[in-house]
Design a protein around this nucleic acid. Structure first.
Lengths: 207, 207
DNA sequence: CAATACCAAGCAAGCGCTTGGTTTGTAAAC
DNA sequence: GTTTACAAACCAAGCGCTTGCTTGGTATTG
């Protein structure tokens, strides 16, 4: 990887697209992501959220107008960050096959790494968003998805994959995001190994 | 398929392992599954559940002691039914490859078919179950999962797949259950086509 | 001396669930 | 073949609690 995670994050923070993780807002969003993943959005109360950052529940509404706005912010910022990370990962590879591998690794890193809580929220809590904000998040996600479709279409053109790129991506989305429910980085299986397994499953091995 | 769905269902009903879909309890569980999938368990109130079957909210507690017990019943009965269906699908095929194909088809049929609501609940709402009932459901699910591991291990031994069977199954779980979020049977893509795509993705085609 | 960040207190609404009593289905007793 | 008995199914009402959010005021900071 030529561009590292922190550089990308800082650039987004500078553009006000993502909250500074060290600021009050950023800290709250991180705790919110953790709570939303662990207990679900509905089971998490504003009192839980407030306690997690050490303030009174009413004080939350100085930073966010509603509880739902917190959920939306978690999702929006997560998509933005991951789109940037994914683009960087894709750009750094020079063959389609290497590009797919890099993207799978990047997505798994997001899922099991620091933004894992937020990624899980993105996967499991979209139903808790009401229509308008959901559409907003989905629109952002489309940009992210297009990065995947580009590389999968290239692989299809090369004959490296046989199935429809669109469907392959949807299957990959499910397969990779499902790892949040079972993969533990401290187990015997490293992240790179896991990527190898995914590539092997699609018979695209050759690390 | 030599054994059809209704036969299997009736056998389970006769053994009291699954509620009669026409009975009061069965109807409630079906409506509960639909509501839980559409709005999530937490957002679904006992008043919603009662209204869906046309009774007062208090009357629910004549059939179930708590709201959580309804969720558990939905999950338990769904796993039981699908284990039976999956076993039948597996037994009817004679090669490992055909068996995997039959099982993928069976799982997709469960996901997009009549029990689809309940399957989605099983996937997305496990976090809403408290510890003890969750362990119970997971224990039942292990039986179901073993059916998959058996056929994947056979395929591995035959050299038809390259990756670890355990990991392949987890990837398949994610990929297939994720279809609930996007696949619509009335679109251009039929279920058999979708299975073909999955097999093609694993380079196991040859319908 | 504003503006920002927070606290203490509490309100209105909605939640799961309980209660006491009525209707309905079923089958034995007469 | 009507009556009696009784449990299962349900209703109407509401209790106690938690929820998201508001309000009016007080520190803190540049």
């Amino acid at each position: 990887m030529t561009v590292n995670r922190d550089e990308i994050l800082n650039a987004l923070v500078a553009d006000n697209l993502v909250s500074d993780p060290n600021g009050a807002r950023g800290r709250l969003l991180r705790e919110a992501a953790r709570l939303f993943r662990d207990k679900g959005y509905e089971r998490t109360t504003v009192r839980d959220l407030a306690a997690a950052v050490g303030i009174q529940s009413g004080s939350l509404f100085h930073h966010f107008r509603t509880k739902e706005e917190i959920l939306k912010a978690v999702m929006v910022e997560t998509v933005r960050l991951n789109t940037a990370l994914m683009r960087a990962a894709a750009d750094a590879a020079d063959t389609s096959r290497a590009r797919l591998r890099a993207m799978i690794l990047a997505e798994l890193e997001s899922i099991v790494g620091q933004t894992g809580e937020a990624m899980a929220v993105l996967v499991f809590e979209w139903r808790s968003l009401s229509d308008a904000p959901r559409e907003e998040v989905l629109a952002l996600r489309d940009i992210y998805e297009q990065l995947w479709l580009d590389v999968l279409e290239a692989l299809k053109a090369e004959g490296a994959i046989e199935a429809d790129p669109f469907i392959v991506r949807r299957m990959l989305t499910g397969a990779l995001s499902w790892t949040v429910t079972w993969y533990r980085p401290d187990g015997g299986l490293g992240l790179e190994d896991l990527v190898d397994q995914v590539m092997a499953m699609m018979r695209l091995a050759s690390r």
